[in-house]
């Protein structure tokens, strides 16, 4: 098990470094000048723009800039955000919390509900219930998340006035303690629901297929031949075998969830990473964008490592492939 873990982590390091360099280069290919964005379209004294350019080291050759960036990264310095006038690392970490607050519950709910839906549908493949689950998950999968978000805002925030339309906290009052928590949860309902619907659809589709596959396996016959009930066989024998593809999908989406929330965060003005990302593109805020890329890359790679770990937990044959004592 330890050898397996080390091998997985060992592969992750060069991938992160490669992503870093590629991202650094790609972002410099994008047209637009950050100094221009910072100074604005006002007439400025000659040499002012050059002075700022020099101050941020943007006059150096590209390779030198890359080298400086990597050295700074090693020291935990992700640079300074022009637009936000603060260091990138704390800025990103601060916003990442809000994104996780939105995505973690949504993904967890989606994983559980998606699997339960699939477990209920697959044994009755072809039935009305199964067809409805398939149809609904196809719709949930296909509906654009920003459209669903806006429909929800129109219905529940504007017409019914049950839930807040935007933001994470009520701006007009200063709440503390449990009231503040309740206020955040209140704001979480609509964006959380939009995200959850999408991920339920994603999980249910994969889970249904893998439950169907597991149901057709020979060991299900053995379990039934023992006289075990259909429900017991489904939960104890079919589900553990069906979870492996499901773990892949959840792990994959978890890795992307930090930036995957861009659309929802924009629609609901949720102050997470996605929101910061869009703002930083507008501002040509290179260090922030690079920081977000780095964070996403690390998150995706880590999610993959965790998914691989999960495989080993779910499937003893994966563990076995790294030696008996691993």
């Amino acid at each position: 098990m330890r050898a397996y873990l080390l091998a997985r982590l060992g592969w992750a390091v060069p991938i992160v470094i490669a992503i870093l360099i590629i991202n650094f280069l790609i972002i410099h290919l994008v047209p637009g000048d950050p100094i221009q964005a910072l100074v604005g379209d006002f007439p400025t004294p000659p040499g002012y723009a050059e002075q700022i350019r020099k101050e941020y080291g943007l006059d150096q050759p590209l390779l030198t800039q890359l080298w400086l960036y990597l050295v700074n990264l090693a020291g935990g310095n992700l640079g300074f955000s022009f637009a936000n006038r603060q260091p990138v690392l704390p800025l990103i970490l601060d916003r990442a919390r809000f994104t996780l607050l939105l995505m973690l519950p949504a993904l967890t709910c989606a994983a559980v509900l998606g699997v339960v839906l699939a477990l209920a549908a697959a044994p009755r493949a072809g039935s009305l219930y199964d067809s409805s689950v398939t149809a609904i998950s196809l719709i949930g999968f296909s509906v654009p998340i920003f459209w669903l978000g806006q429909i929800l805002i129109i219905a529940f925030a504007i017409k019914l006035r049950w839930l807040p339309a935007q933001g994470m906290i009520s701006l007009r009052e200063t709440l503390t303690g449990w009231a503040a928590v309740a206020d955040v949860l209140w704001h979480l309902v609509l964006p959380g629901f939009s995200v959850t619907i999408y991920y339920i659809a994603v999980v249910a589709r994969v889970a249904r297929a893998s439950v169907l596959d597991a149901l057709s396996q020979d060991f299900v016959l053995t379990a039934k031949a023992k006289g075990l009930s259909g429900r017991y066989v489904l939960w104890r024998h079919v589900l553990p075998n069906a979870l492996i593809p499901v773990a892949t999908v959840i792990g994959y989406n978890f890795g992307y969830s930090l930036t995957g929330a861009i659309l929802v965060e924009t629609v609901f003005a949720w102050p997470g990473i996605g929101n910061l990302f869009i703002a930083s593109i507008g501002n040509r805020d290179y260090p922030v964008l690079q920081g977000i890329f780095l964070l996403t890359a690390v998150a995706v790679v880590l999610a993959n490592v965790v998914t691989d770990m999960l495989y080993a937990v779910l499937d003893p044959r994966v563990r076995g492939s790294y030696g008996k004592n691993a």
Binding site: Q217, D218, F219, T222, A223, H237, N241, D315
Partner: peptide, 11 residues
């Protein structure tokens, strides 16, 4: 059954 590998639950 015939094939003892596939007829036992692998996990």
């Amino acid at each position: 059954f015939q094939d003892p590998l596939t007829y036992l639950n692998p996990v």
